[in-house]
Computed example of a mutant assay.
Amino acid sequence: MFRKEYIRIESSTQHSSVNDFVVINIPEEDVEPKQIILDPDDQPMWESAKTVAPTPNSAIIQLDVDDNFVINSTHLNMIRENKFDGYLRADPHDHIREFLAICNMFRYGETQSEAVKLLIFPFSLCDKAKTWFNELNEESITSWEQMRKAFINRFFPPSLFNRLLLEIRNFSQLVCENLTEAWLRLKNMLRKCHGHGLTKGAII
């Protein structure tokens, strides 16, 4: 390998204003090697990092399923279209009821039904609910019933239950509504207060 250097030679002719250039090939080995020093402060911060933190595992344990196990794409799409966001007006019991109704429309192996629920339940969550799920301890959920209880306890806490029960006990017919409308409004309040334990006599 050679490198080229250009040497300018001025003409000796008095009236000539043209400069001549001579090309000289110098063997590459004759070139003194250059040492490049990189300042660590000039490097991108992601290159200077020595270690990369491991990605956390899911809150759900690693499930034992068959190698050829596949979740129906239609099933998964229906779950994604019925998401729970975790905001105040969202009813976790209604979400679980709808989730199970969709799951019951599809059939998998007898031993795979619980695995399917656990695998696809996170895809039914968004916003605050998905943040809550991602903050659960790694591999802390080992069964569907445990997942259901953790979900209900978070989004239907005792404080919410007590508030709904108090609203029911203080219920009264509004001036602008007839008896039928008042009765339907009360039934809707009762439906949202899961586990209220009120008898028909107490409700009437």
Score class of each variant (00 low, 15 high):
2 F>G: 09
5 E>L: 11
6 Y>I: 13
6 Y>G: 02
8 R>Q: 14
9 I>H: 14
9 I>Q: 15
10 E>N: 06
11 S>I: 01
11 S>Q: 09
12 S>I: 05
12 S>Y: 08
12 S>N: 12
12 S>C: 06
13 T>K: 15
13 T>S: 15
13 T>H: 13
16 S>E: 12
21 F>G: 03
21 F>K: 05
22 V>A: 15
22 V>T: 13
22 V>L: 09
27 P>K: 08
32 E>K: 11
32 E>L: 11
32 E>D: 04
32 E>T: 06
33 P>R: 15
33 P>Y: 04
37 I>F: 09
38 L>M: 12
40 P>C: 03
42 D>W: 03
43 Q>H: 08
44 P>A: 09
45 M>Q: 09
45 M>Y: 11
49 A>K: 09
49 A>H: 09
52 V>E: 04
54 P>D: 13
54 P>L: 08
55 T>M: 09
58 S>W: 02
60 I>H: 01
60 I>Q: 02
61 I>A: 14
62 Q>F: 03
62 Q>L: 10
63 L>H: 08
63 L>I: 10
64 D>H: 13
64 D>W: 01
65 V>W: 01
66 D>G: 14
67 D>Y: 03
70 V>I: 11
71 I>L: 12
72 N>E: 11
74 T>Q: 14
77 N>V: 01
81 E>H: 03
82 N>E: 03
85 D>Q: 07
87 Y>H: 13
88 L>I: 06
88 L>C: 08
89 R>W: 13
92 P>W: 01
94 D>V: 01
94 D>P: 02
94 D>S: 10
95 H>G: 00
98 E>M: 04
100 L>Y: 02
102 I>S: 05
104 N>A: 11
108 Y>V: 05
109 G>N: 08
111 T>E: 14
112 Q>K: 14
112 Q>L: 10
112 Q>V: 09
113 S>L: 03
113 S>Y: 00
113 S>H: 07
115 A>P: 00
118 L>E: 05
118 L>Q: 09
119 L>W: 03
120 I>M: 02
121 F>T: 03
124 S>N: 02
124 S>P: 02
125 L>M: 06
125 L>S: 02
125 L>I: 00
127 D>W: 04
127 D>T: 07
130 K>D: 08
130 K>V: 05
131 T>G: 05
131 T>S: 12
132 W>N: 07
132 W>I: 04
140 S>D: 14
140 S>L: 07
141 I>T: 05
142 T>S: 13
143 S>D: 11
144 W>N: 14
144 W>G: 05
145 E>G: 04
146 Q>V: 01
147 M>H: 06
148 R>Y: 02
148 R>K: 12
152 I>G: 03
152 I>T: 03
153 N>Q: 15
154 R>L: 02
154 R>Y: 07
158 P>Q: 15
160 L>H: 12
160 L>C: 05
160 L>F: 12
164 L>I: 11
166 L>E: 15
167 E>N: 08
169 R>Q: 10
170 N>K: 14
170 N>R: 12
180 T>M: 08
180 T>I: 08
181 E>M: 05
182 A>H: 08
182 A>K: 06
183 W>M: 04
183 W>R: 03
183 W>Q: 06
184 L>W: 04
184 L>P: 00
184 L>H: 10
185 R>I: 00
186 L>A: 02
197 G>W: 13
199 T>K: 04
199 T>N: 08
200 K>H: 04
201 G>R: 05
